[in-house]
Design a protein around this nucleic acid. Structure first.
Lengths: 338, 338
DNA sequence: TTGTAGGCGTTATCAG
DNA sequence: CTGATAACGCCTACAA
């Protein structure tokens, strides 16, 4: 039952009555072989149901044909979609995807990179808490392993697939200001471990300032509050004068809407809300969510493409930021004149 | 710059002035060694920043310490969460996760299994279009590779982590009937490639029948209709007499709600809607979605646990179905008496 | 306690 | 055109 010993190229050679070298040449079409022996080898391989051991190959070729991918979490659809993008782009490249999640923990981040490297990944695609100060990442790169980032703004020495969070947030600010909002909040989850969130806030502030407004209030919350509407409502209640809130992602924006409802505040009449990411459900809501539309899947694809190029020895060039798009929605309107 | 040649155990041995055998024994704590030489080896390893080549190890131990995971798509949060569950459960097991997506294609399914096997995965976790008739899967198993399924109902020969779709759907039917619905529809996406969907429909029908109702109308749609509310509305329009619809997943249920709105039909007064999965956003909606709550993450965890057990040589035992829970919501009410 | 040697599956080199 | 043979990095009898 248990075919414990798998069939190796040696078995094929033996069955075909030739040397392993010849069998290898035939099977790989990597060298000359008489039609006759070729035939014998191919048949033997078929009969024995032979397939190469990628481990044996890896050992001798020093390439594992494996790519390591690190993301904070697959429970976040944004990252899941990005990985899906990576996956599709790698589909026919012969590379397999090794994945790892850090749960937004910087230590786990570094450990994961090291593990991936110890598995001899030929390349790395990562989204981390702090790629710029990750020793493990630098080290991987210095060892000659190509690295490609996702979601992060460009960092010296790495190529990255990203959308310009700063600019996108400015666009949101523009929309808010245009409608007449002046008391504005920015709601952030995991502000300290997400450069995306920080860049969005920075851009948001920059544009507000440019329009002569004070910096928007930064409201940081934790996992707990994010998933508990009543907690979120309590927090919202601490900022009763705000007329508009920019949430650092769509899920949060929807949660804010829910919390507002709990407080009896109507969206958008009493409170405007905008999100970030452009998840599809947003447009199916009773009040379609105003948001910044992005394509995580495209990010994954681009990261994979950059990595493949680098692995082919091409000198890495940083592609431009991926496009984003402000999607209007019913959660955003002019503030209620009191 | 390019540390092309990585440091091997041979280098360590040399630096420590001993044989590789001794170095191996020390580094693996797998045999005797004098305190002195142990010290030298450990220091050398540290100085040289040595780490084992998992490929070398895999070749000699015939274990890759890698687990292959196949899911239809990571763009579906249900599967993404399941993989996240697998991932967390594997965290400290020393195994790495190799992932692959089939995009709901049966051919790709088999190809993926073969690829995963050719990568010498030590175990397989899969959700497929048709695991019961997958030659590749059987073959993997016959080769002695432990296999664990996710989301599928138990199949002879495999252990699976699942929720009882049939029973869960019966529960939904019960709720519908209890409220007085008699003209009921089941909306399915990818009915032909999803045994989950089919089992849900079967259970749904069974319970309706048991209550003396005719089989619910089966409404099959494609990707296109699912993501286009107006198309979905058109389809809904073809079934004007239905008073309640059970959608095969939450996303679809939310889409139905949207489509109903487009048609000027109020939910739940004119049309009741229930979903399946229990995604978190469902409870944040203006009309919280009635649904069957499940935990994909738990499914992933359980599949991983079963697999680990099997890989430790334990005889596989099929764990019981994971629990589900009917979550009441505002999308479900008694039908409007005309 | 330590070292030598063989082998895991593959490919590349180099003679025949 | 073909076949030894030597790596690749590691582990483990078996000897010393």
């Amino acid at each position: 039952m248990q075919q414990k010993t798998s069939v190796t190229i040696r078995d094929v050679a033996q069955a075909a009555g030739c040397s392993v070298a010849t069998a290898s040449r035939v099977l790989n079409k990597s060298g000359p072989a008489s039609a006759e022996v070729r035939e014998r080898v191919e048949r033997a391989a078929r009969d024995l149901d032979f397939s190469f051991s990628s481990i044996g190959r890896a050992l001798q070729s020093r390439r594992s044909m494996t790519i390591g991918c690190l993301v904070p979490s697959l429970a976040n659809p944004v990252f899941a979609e990005a990985v899906q993008g990576v996956q599709s782009e790698l589909k026919d490249s012969g590379y397999q995807l090794l994945i790892s999640c850090s749960n937004y923990d910087e230590t786990a981040d570094n450990a994961a990179i090291e593990t991936l490297m110890s598995k001899d990944a030929d390349g790395l695609i990562a989204t981390m808490v702090a790629p710029d100060r990750s020793a493990a990442l630098r080290q991987a790169q210095q060892r000659g392993t190509p690295v490609s980032l996702m979601f992060h703004d460009p960092i010296e020495g790495f190529t990255t697939a990203y959308v310009d969070n700063f600019e996108a947030a400015r666009e949101v600010a523009r929309q808010f200001v245009r409608l007449g909002h002046r008391r504005i909040g920015f709601l952030a989850l995991r502000f300290s471990t997400s450069d995306r969130s920080r860049n969005r806030y920075a851009g948001f502030c920059a544009e507000c300032r440019a329009r002569g407004l004070p910096d928007p209030v930064l409201i940081e919350i934790g996992e707990a509050e994010a998933s508990r509407p009543d907690s979120l409502a309590a927090i919202l209640n601490d900022h009763p004068t705000l007329t508009a809130i920019f949430a650092s992602n769509d899920f949060l924006a929807i949660a804010v809407h829910k919390a507002a409802r709990l407080l009896g505040r109507r969206v958008p009449q009493d409170l405007s809300v905008a999100g970030f990411d452009g998840i599809e459900i947003g447009r199916l809501l009773e009040a379609p969510l105003a948001t910044i539309e992005t394509s995580p899947e495209a990010m994954g694809r681009q990261a994979a493409r950059s990595l493949l190029e680098a692995m082919q020895g091409q000198v890495p060039i940083q592609p431009p930021a991926l496009p984003f798009h402000f999607r209007a929605g019913a959660t955003l309107a002019a503030p209620n004149p009191e």
